[in-house]
Computed example of a mutant assay.
Amino acid sequence: MPKMSFFERDGSVREVEAPLGLSVLEIAHRHGVDLEGACEGSLACATCHVVVDPAWAEKLQPPTEDEEDMLDLAFALEKTSRLGCQIVMTEALDGLVVRLPRTG
């Protein structure tokens, strides 16, 4: 099964199984990673904001205009910021690394 890693806000790294077809948000929830997702993946908020490791950013599908609009609302936006609900696990993303942004 594919895997991915979350760099948590406290600096720890959690490598988890990442089933194909699930979003990064769903994978985080499945493994108890502190990624909110207030709109439950309906692309109506920015609470599942993650920062994709630069080595992986180019491997993702580009963000849609709707995702970019929601990212404008995210705190601590970075060049490789994405919404976890919009990154869907594929074989090509086996090993994906994302970081949870600092809050406040």
Rank of each mutant, 00 (worst) to 15 (best):
C39K: 03
P101V: 02
E78Y: 11
D66K: 08
V98L: 09
G21Q: 04
F75W: 14
G32S: 08
H29K: 08
T47Y: 00
P2G: 04
S23M: 02
L22G: 06
V33D: 03
L71E: 09
A18S: 03
L83A: 06
F6E: 01
A46Q: 02
C39T: 08
A38C: 12
A28I: 00
L25H: 04
A57V: 13
G21C: 04
P101I: 03
A38R: 11
P63V: 08
E17R: 13
V98W: 02
S42Y: 10
D72I: 12
D10C: 07
D10V: 09
V33L: 07
E65K: 13
V33C: 05
A46S: 09
A57W: 11
H49G: 02
A44C: 12
L73T: 12
V88D: 06
L60T: 03
L73Y: 14
C39E: 03
G104R: 10
W56G: 02
L71Y: 07
A76K: 15
D10Q: 11
P62I: 10
E17N: 13
L20W: 14
A38D: 15
P62E: 10
V51F: 04
A38M: 14
V52R: 00
E68S: 12
K3R: 11
D66F: 10
C85E: 04
V52N: 03
E36H: 10
P2C: 05
T103Y: 08
S5T: 11
